[in-house]
């Protein structure tokens, strides 16, 4: 009888005992105490895993990638994913598998070959868990990056034909690409003649950032819109001059100044009027 089938038989004999021992071990260092997963839920997960494992072993599967373990792999992947999102540490996540090894040790002592086959298999599953956990975390990071780049480049309409693009945060090539496309698309959609790029929130401007800005401005000009840059902070102005960066576009100190110029260009003006009482004041 192959080792895996021996292991399956031994597990079947003491399945309930293994599960409770497994649960006990996870309580110690599996992150159960934090209350992110209930013990009832964990028991269901453990029973499911063990029965799938036993079935796979009975079919003679020896490696993690064996087709007999397809369902087991899916369960494990989903488990790691949900733990990664819930904020379990990698150790707590991997403990799920490694605690099983300890729990089954006593049962499998009767057959050294079966114990060895199972140990190797569980190590493989441990690594698989880890990989799935890592992938889930990376997905989260990638999604956040995407959200940040979308969130931080809003294009706002200030007036008919006047757009503002308040830039916040460091500009790198990838973000500039998003900013550029966003701005140009909005120029078309809103039929804007003037775009004000406000860089008050940009911490540093180096030659690369300046080049990105210039490209955006050149592209906007090709489409028939003018750009005004506003909010250059004193240190940045100094840095730019020392670096020899020549923006060669209209710049204004504040967004308000830029807006006033934009209004003049589109033939509008702002004047004083009698103050209107606030409703309820």
């Amino acid at each position: 009888m192959p080792d895996t089938q021996t292991a399956a038989r031994l597990i079947a004999q003491e399945e309930a005992a293994i599960v409770s021992e497994w649960l006990r071990l996870q309580e110690v260092d599996g992150g159960l105490g934090s209350g992110r997963v209930s013990s009832a839920e964990l028991r269901v997960q453990c029973e499911r895993f063990l029965s799938l494992l036993r079935r796979g072993l009975a079919e003679g599967a020896e490696a993690v990638q064996d087709p007999a373990f397809t369902e087991l792999r899916d369960v494990l992947r989903e488990l790691s994913r949900s733990r990664a999102i819930q904020g379990f540490t990698p150790t707590e996540t991997a403990t799920f598998i490694f605690a099983l090894k300890e729990a089954m040790f006593r049962t499998l002592q009767q057959d050294a070959d079966a114990a060895w086959a199972l140990t190797r298999l569980l190590d493989g599953f441990g690594l698989y868990t880890f990989e799935a956990y890592q992938r889930a975390r990376e997905e989260v990071i990638a999604r956040q990056q995407r959200e940040i780049s979308e969130l931080s480049t809003p294009v706002v309409k200030l007036w008919d034909g006047v757009l503002a693009l308040p830039l916040i945060g460091t500009l790198d090539s990838e973000r500039t690409q998003v900013v550029m496309e966003n701005l140009l698309q909005n120029i078309v959609d809103l039929n804007a003649e003037i775009a004000i790029i406000d860089i008050t929130g940009v911490p540093t401007v180096d030659t690369l950032v300046a080049q990105h800005l210039l490209k955006t401005i050149a592209a906007a000009r090709l489409m028939g819109a003018d750009c005004i840059i506003s909010g250059i902070r004193p240190q940045i102005a100094q840095t730019m001059v020392h670096l020899g960066v020549d923006l060669n576009v209209v710049t204004k100190a504040s967004l308000a100044d830029a807006f006033a110029l934009a209004l003049r260009r589109v033939g509008q003006s702002v004047g004083r009027a009698a103050p209107v009482a606030r409703p309820g004041a």
Binding site: M180, E181, L184, Q185, I187, V188, N191, A192, E193, K215, A218, A219, A220, R221, L222, M223, G224, A225
Partner: peptide, 27 residues
């Protein structure tokens, strides 16, 4: 030159053809 699309504008700038001396308009 009027009505240039964003993608076209980006391409021209990336090609280094910023077309100085040509007036542009939205429509």
């Amino acid at each position: 030159v009027v009505g240039m699309r964003p993608a076209v504008a980006i391409t021209l700038v990336e090609l280094g053809l910023e077309l100085p001396g040509i007036r542009t308009a939205l429509d």
